[in-house]
Design a binder for these strands. Structure first.
Lengths: 214, 214
DNA sequence: ATCCGACCAGACTCGTGAGTCCAATTCGGG
DNA sequence: CCCGAATTGGACTCACGAGTCTGGTCGGAT
């Protein structure tokens, strides 16, 4: 949860680290009420901090939002890249490998924080279009790119038959993400692990039928 | 654009049809500013109507939003169903058929009104979760269902090899929608017709590689 | 001609939330 | 042990927007 840079005498008692407490609280409150409705008072209260302290650290409400989103996006990116990193040809069953990676990605995708972040981003998109741009460009595209790299290597090894690795990566992501969006109603409905597994399996199945080497 | 029920002495002069003018204006303003920011004053101004008239017709701001979204969702559903309806086995080239339907669906999906509606829905989702539920359930699911029906018939005719038509329909939709989401940055970027065509072609290609009868 | 109901302009109430200010307090380092 | 920076609670200003009300206008039906 916390775990950032230098001095980490975590929030509760330390005189420092109000900052992190505020960011956590802001995320919770923004997610719960939306940017416009969320009062800075509410954020301060949730963080156990005076309103003036929030302004000391961030200057204004908008900056609080940007910092919050930026931090979360960074974390999400790291998680997704780690998941994609598992896609390494071990010479074993290709389908099992794809399902393993797909499952890791699906778990990143369905993580509570992840859903909340995405919902927040979508909600405030009209007010802060650049935020969505940042996340689309910096997170989504990077993950696709990393996935494409791995797929290209599998293709070189003769295990897949893809001509455009980026397109294939996009399609794999689509096959994974869209059904999850629908099943979870944008993360507002719990899905059993079996259901996730079924989605991943279907995605991997279709992907392999389309791209497995002959 | 307007074209609804009974008396359509369109907005400007007629004593009636203020209602439709208000709904149109509300859609524009909500889309531009988001629900929370959009003032009823602004909606009234955009509709060329007094604020009191808005309250005469709808009672409160929330009702204005619900009616607006409901109307638009209905129209979107009709358009999508029409597109799916084109998926009829003519005995000709299956790929061309799929691309034709895919293109029709993509055009529905990329229509300005369609994007705006979806963005509005996503934006206000935290405040009105039931609205998204309505659209997901009543529009999205129905389209998938209709598509599944058509795919099932193609399977019966021996032209496709699908075991679960609904899953296949979902995947086709995913292959179509996700790349469009990304390319158009949720509809905030114009995409050339060639680009759309390329997405449709890629989707149809992957779908057929996975599901074409052997 | 006249009455009714929809419409208009704009003023008004009321609540809410951003951002500021300040005097009192508390902690951390020297 | 003391200084300064961070923090605190709370009061305060200011702007904005929902919803109400009023007095008056206009068109159409009887």
């Amino acid at each position: 949860m916390s775990a950032v840079g230098a001095g980490d005498l975590t929030g509760s008692r330390g005189r420092i680290d109000k900052r992190q407490a505020i960011l956590d609280a802001a995320f919770a409150v923004f997610a719960r009420e939306g940017y416009a409705q969320a009062g800075v008072d509410a954020i301060a209260a949730e963080a156990g901090v005076a309103k003036a302290t929030v302004y000391n650290h961030f200057g204004d409400k908008e900056t609080v939002l940007r910092q919050t989103v930026g931090l979360l996006a960074e974390q999400a990116l790291a998680q997704n890249l780690a998941a994609v990193g598992r896609l390494t040809d071990t010479g074993g069953d290709l389908r099992a490998l794809l399902e393993d990676v797909g499952l890791s990605l699906a778990h990143c995708y369905c993580d509570e924080r992840s859903w909340t972040l995405r919902r927040l981003l979508l909600s405030e998109f009209s007010r802060f279009p650049d935020l969505l741009g940042l996340v689309f460009g910096q997170v989504n595209d990077r993950v696709i790119e990393a996935l494409a790299d791995r797929l290209a290597r599998l293709a070189l090894a003769g295990r897949l038959h893809v001509t455009d690795p980026v397109a294939a990566a996009e399609q794999f992501a689509a096959l994974l993400g869209s059904p999850l969006d629908k099943r979870t109603r944008l993360g507002t409905r719990d899905v059993s692990d079996e259901e996730i597994r079924a989605v991943v399996s279907a995605a991997a199945g279709t992907f392999l039928k389309a791209f497995a080497a002959p």
